[in-house]
């Protein structure tokens, strides 16, 4: 995985250059938003379980997915589903701290779609849940941090679709 700093260094090292002014401005912006990212991470980690509960209530509960015959029917599958949502939330938080989505690609999305297809997990429902998680998270951490987290939730969705 990479964070914004590592990826900037790697990009410019292969060209034997100093980071240009655009890259420096991005780094400056990242450092300036450090407090925001730190606070958002603390808020999310303290409320992770309830974010999942609310997001599931908003998107999946009382739909075909949770009804008998649906992919979330049986406690075991329900538990597997919320476990995956917890992973998405945690990795989206990591990516937000790093300011770079590569950890999502590397540790979440790589092969996920194929796995879900073979398990019969509906992609559409998963994406709805991730979008709901994005809204619930934004309510919790506020607009600015919510927007930043939204980038990584959307990244997960586009990686699934």
């Amino acid at each position: 995985m990479q964070d914004l700093i590592t990826s900037t260094i790697n990009t410019f090292d292969v060209r034997a250059q100093y980071p240009d002014s655009d890259a420096m401005n991005r780094l400056e912006e990242y450092f300036r938003s450090g407090d925001l990212r730190a606070k958002a991470s603390l808020a999310i980690s303290a409320n992770a379980k309830s974010i999942i509960t609310k997001a599931v209530a908003k998107s999946l509960m009382y739909t075909d997915i949770t009804a008998p015959g649906g992919n979330m029917y049986t406690c075991r599958r329900y538990a597997a589903c919320i476990r995956d949502l917890e992973y998405f939330l945690r990795y989206a938080t990591y990516a937000m701290l790093a300011g770079d989505p590569s950890i999502l690609e590397e540790r979440v999305l790589n092969g996920l779609r194929e796995t879900y297809n073979s398990l019969g997990v509906p992609i559409g429902g998963t994406m709805r849940a991730v979008q709901a998680m994005k809204e619930v998270t934004a309510d919790l951490v506020g607009t600015d941090a919510g927007k930043e987290m939204g980038v990584y939730f959307d990244y997960i969705c586009s990686g699934l679709s």
């Binding site: 990242y30 450090g34 730190a38 992770a48």
Partner: peptide, 19 residues
């Protein structure tokens, strides 16, 4: 797990000296 409070404090310090 999520980053702990002390790890988050490290990150904050790192960002504060960033400029």
């Amino acid at each position: 797990r999520y980053p702990s409070l002390s790890e988050i404090n490290l990150l904050q310090n790192f960002c504060q000296t960033g400029a």
